[in-house]
């Protein structure tokens, strides 16, 4: 006799033949199979037709309790009052500041443009000297208290890491070589813009440093990087400020934190020529147009096009395109002649 469990793997056309020949169990199974298929199709259609509800970039801060694990314990959620732990409040406040900046300046709803929740982890590991974006959330170490201090307490660090998230959802620049250096560059660019805005600094009085608030008393330098003068922030700073000194080694994913000094310097020069507000719009619009494997040449091509378009729309000053070309030329990134 045809058992239901046996019939379920039999193709429908065989079931149909058997049902026609009088097998009631096969007929029953055939009907059941059709019913399951119909309800499955309905469920798939509903899923496809569902309009994803957009979030608003709600913030969640987790305390890792000095373990090497994320989301160990929730310490503050969106809308909640400040807590006793200062680091939690820094991560909460600064991620909100960065989120609001991107929304106000570019109408970008959180990291992904769809209101993705912003999850931050603080007190990660023991004496952990780093902060990172992992594709979904941000994680901050406390620093060892000697070389580095609390990474969540730096508005530029928070902006840098959140911009990595934004880059992932826009150009998704590959994290190696020149595309990786551009990935780092965009994070430093928006870290700088947001830091200057946060401290209400003018470009002429700003220090153009990255990470100056998280270096400790024994760190041999004033900051981690300098946009104005790459290669001078500390004793180990090997960032070049010109293509002549381009790093060609394999370390650091082929120099993502090293060669970013070259476009960083071009950004600084552009800001000095046309102002940081015009540059922020041009750089963000460029980030929207870049692609995974874009290199420095591609960046120059796209940013020139973007600047020209924004000039046409009278959204930036009419010297923007020339100023940017000159800035890139000053660091050795020049258009290729065919």
């Amino acid at each position: 006799m045809c058992q239901k469990f046996k019939c379920s793997i039999v193709p429908p056309y065989i079931l149909e033949q058997l049902a026609k020949r009088g097998s009631s169990s096969c007929k029953k199974t055939l009907l059941e199979t059709q019913r399951i298929a119909l309800s499955r199709n309905l469920a798939i259609n509903n899923l496809l037709q569902r309009i994803d509800l957009e979030g608003a970039g709600e913030r969640f801060v987790y305390d890792c309790l000095n373990e090497y694990r994320q989301q160990v314990k929730i310490s503050r959620s969106e809308g909640e009052a400040p807590v006793a732990d200062k680091t939690t409040n820094y991560a909460y406040d600064y991620s909100g500041y960065v989120r609001d900046y991107f929304k106000e300046a570019f109408m970008l709803n959180s990291i992904d443009g769809k209101g993705m929740a912003i999850r931050s982890n603080v007190h990660y590991g023991k004496d952990y000297n780093n902060a990172f974006w992992d594709g979904d959330e941000i994680t901050y170490g406390d620093g060892d208290g000697v070389q580095f201090s609390n990474f969540a307490a730096g508005i530029d660090v928070v902006a840098h890491e959140l911009t990595h998230g934004i880059t992932q959802f826009l150009g998704n620049l590959e994290y190696k070589g020149q595309s990786g250096a551009l990935n780092e560059h965009f994070s430093d660019v928006f870290a700088t813009i947001i830091k200057q805005r946060f401290y209400a600094q003018d470009i002429t009085e700003a220090d153009w440093l990255i990470g100056d608030t998280v270096v400790g008393r024994d760190f041999p330098g004033k900051a981690i990087r300098s946009m104005k003068a790459p290669g001078t922030a500390n004793q180990f700073d090997s960032q070049p400020n010109h293509m002549d000194n381009y790093y060609t080694g394999a370390s650091d994913n082929y120099g993502v934190h090293i060669n970013s000094g070259i476009p960083n310097k071009a950004f600084y020069l552009s800001c000095m020529a046309i102002g940081i507000d015009d540059c922020s719009l041009i750089w963000f619009s460029t980030l929207r147009k870049l692609w995974r494997t874009a290199n420095f040449q591609d960046m120059l091509g796209v940013i020139t096009e973007v600047a020209n378009q924004l000039m046409k729309e009278e959204k930036v000053c009419n010297t923007a395109s020339t100023a940017i070309m000159e800035s890139f030329s000053a660091v050795g990134i020049i258009p290729l002649t065919v």
Binding site: F132, F148, F151, H160, N234, V256, H257, I258
Partner: peptide
């Protein structure tokens, strides 16, 4: 140890 926000290998 290399990479990281700091980018200084140790």
């Amino acid at each position: 140890i290399e990479g990281g926000f700091v980018g200084i290998p140790k």
